[in-house]
Design a binder for these strands. Structure first.
Lengths: 243, 243, 243, 243
DNA sequence: CATGAATGAGCCTTCATTCAT
DNA sequence: TATGAATGAAGGCTCATTCAT
């Protein structure tokens, strides 16, 4: 039995190695730059072995997405459990997305890939379910915070605005901001000097726009942010140098 | 000379045809689905002729991005010249992005492609400059509106917030929202029913967050939107069915 | 010793299982559709074990041919021992080929494969001998009947016609007819409605052509056929639904 | 225009070269031994060029079958037009099949391949139609002869025997006989010394069996055969050494 | 200038066979 | 003796690019 567990561990380790290698390749040279031959060479396994773990190229991308999704859900859950007022917890979600991007650059790219190219078609339903589940998990965490804010009286939404719509706004803003930062290295030249900081400010502006209290001028969210990093994500903060 | 101008016109026309064809291919079948053979066949020109216009496949993508950028700048300029208060003009910018997406679906995809794949490396500096110029053009139009808002007293920015940062927020929100709508067909299943409307509300929430007057509860921006469509983009509105 | 016999029995059983599995695969998906992985999976033995029984893929095909040959010899011998006049016994041979085809579809295919592909080269001489022996066995059974017909005065062959030539005729006719039926599903569209019945009639026409008595118009060979099925191949007839 | 005809000729020539090469490969090393790389190498064209003529491997087999079918129809038509009594003309059909086998060994193999492997599935309907048309052409020629025999009073068929059934008999006998000769090089060791001659005798025995006059003992069909070779197939006879 | 046949590197994938455990 | 992961050669096919006509 110890044999089988050791083997299982080896299998897992190899799978991780393959995924890490593939991820790096996509990040560096794009989807077309990631190919099975190169993965085989880089991992020092044979092509056949790679195929024993992943039935085809698309499966690798899908696995990468699922894996990333799971990591993100985990971060989101921890963020949502931050000890503080709802808006502080939502701030923690923002911090977690920042950390996620720093810890796993290239994963956003993977997700885009998954939609852009016709990879989806080749992915078995089961994996698509997994993927959807992670998305749902993230959404649940975030919507929960908005609902808590409403319950606790920090936020009053107009009749025609659902909690999900607020989430969608923050999601759009964050996803868009991070994408732009990744895609346009010349943001500085267009006048956007500190894009990451600007993104944070915009997140708060959006919450202010919904009159989600306490408003940013009435609360020290920088202090909150420091607390989040220290209390909820100490390791990640250290690893990424976000302190 | 009249000969050479006719020829020049023909060249331009052909170039446009090639680009339109390529664009449609990427939109329908992804980057891998666009190939020189198919373009040649669809345009009814020979492959050699295609190569006389574009040195390689990447050039086509780059040209498509530039062209799309130019079209967008034009829309932005018209939006910015809308006759109304700055926030109304910014609303017009939002409308123009909506129209742009409807008129040129697939262009967002092209832009992502340009970054995702290692196309950039093969693109000559001159074309990169053109591309950058269009982005700058958009930015200028938008920043101009923010500045006007400040000048006219509708908006007061804190010391640590530059007009560009506000633009970045709206840009992020819009780009992110549109990307999510395109990429996640199952937004409805996650609770986001009317994504496009939600995006517009979020844009206004963000401006409200910056206390950009008149606030959304103090002004009928739906009416503004109708005016924009009717006065500034009548043709585009008709073409896209946005009324 | 009882141990070793049990083991020998197990080995045989496993070998049979492997062959049955392989046979079904070839019948269903062609030679390329039969591969070692699939056999291993279907038999629930490991690939290594398969290789312990058969040195390579070609050996399996060869073994399948030998095995099929042996089954056929057995059927032929039983047919030849049918209680009746020589031409009736030859009719029994015809019935046995019909039954064989129904009981082991795909074996004809195997034999063709054995010749078509360069499998022969990889087959050891010993197995080729076995294969040849089964063919000889069939031939012996059939030639014996022709000789008996001559001896009993039912058949008089010209000087330049050997009993083997008559056998060759019937063999060709039957093999050809069965191959055509298997290969051309559209025989009906060419005007050949009841191919199997037509084949039987042609076999009798050929024997009539050699003036092998009793002629078909002078004997009820349909009754003979029914007797053969009932007396000599009751089980096979039941299994194939030939009644 | 002369350019285009020259080009067309070149294309045809190349196509023929590819088909000839492929045919030889299948004949020598089986279907699996014929592969696109090897064809490219043998023809001294690049793989891409081969694919410009044939969309895939299966297309080559299909083309080979069609081509062979057309050649056969032509031979059959000429045979059917032999100047003589119907049974002599049918003898000419037999001669044509002999010549065909000698002129195009390996084509029978191709046809078997076409059925054995799942090549059919990949063949476009249009080519299947062509193939079917050639078969129909052969059938028409042969059935026509049988009908003429009936009309001219040389042959009287029982009510339950259609002309097509007689054709099926001769087809089976010939196809089967030729297949056996090709597949079993050791027929001699089984007692069948002169297989080709035996096949001819069996064909006549079959016709005798149907009482198709003049019977073989009442007519010198060897002389007929010589006439056929000399009058109808002089070139083919010379080329194959059949005299 | 236009053409489109020719090229061939490169990609994804399969599978017979081996061999350490 | 059984296992099945690992191997890697080989195969079918695509497509950007070139160049003779």
């Amino acid at each position: 039995m110890s044999t089988s567990t050791r083997k299982a561990r080896e299998v897992q380790a190899r799978e991780r190695l393959i995924l890490r290698t593939a991820e790096a390749m996509v990040a560096e040279r794009g989807y077309l730059g990631m190919n099975m031959d190169r993965i085989a060479e880089a991992t020092e396994y044979s092509k056949g072995t790679i195929y024993q773990h992943f039935a085809n190229k698309e499966e690798i991308v899908a696995a990468l997405c699922v894996e990333g999704g799971e990591r993100r859900v985990e971060l989101f859950r921890r963020a949502a459990s931050f000890d503080g007022r709802p808006r502080e917890r939502m701030t923690a979600i923002g911090v977690s997305t920042e950390l996620y991007l720093l810890l796993h650059p290239g994963h956003v790219q993977m997700e885009q890939l998954f939609h852009t190219e016709s990879i989806r078609e080749k992915t078995p339903e089961s994996r698509l379910q997994l993927l959807f589940a992670t998305e749902l998990g993230c959404m649940d965490a975030v919507v929960g915070i908005v609902r808590d804010a409403v319950t606790e009286g920090d936020l009053t939404l107009p009749d025609d605005v659902a909690p999900e719509d607020v989430c969608f706004g923050l999601w759009s803003l964050t996803y868009g901001g991070q994408s732009l930062i990744a895609a346009k290295p010349h943001l500085g030249e267009v006048g956007i000097a500190e894009a990451a900081a600007a993104l944070r400010r915009n997140q708060h502006a959006l919450m202010d726009g919904y009159a989600w209290g306490p408003a940013s001028h009435a609360w020290d969210y920088d202090a909150t942010r420091r607390r989040i990093l220290a209390e909820t994500f100490p390791e990640e903060a250290a690893a990424t140098g976000l302190v």
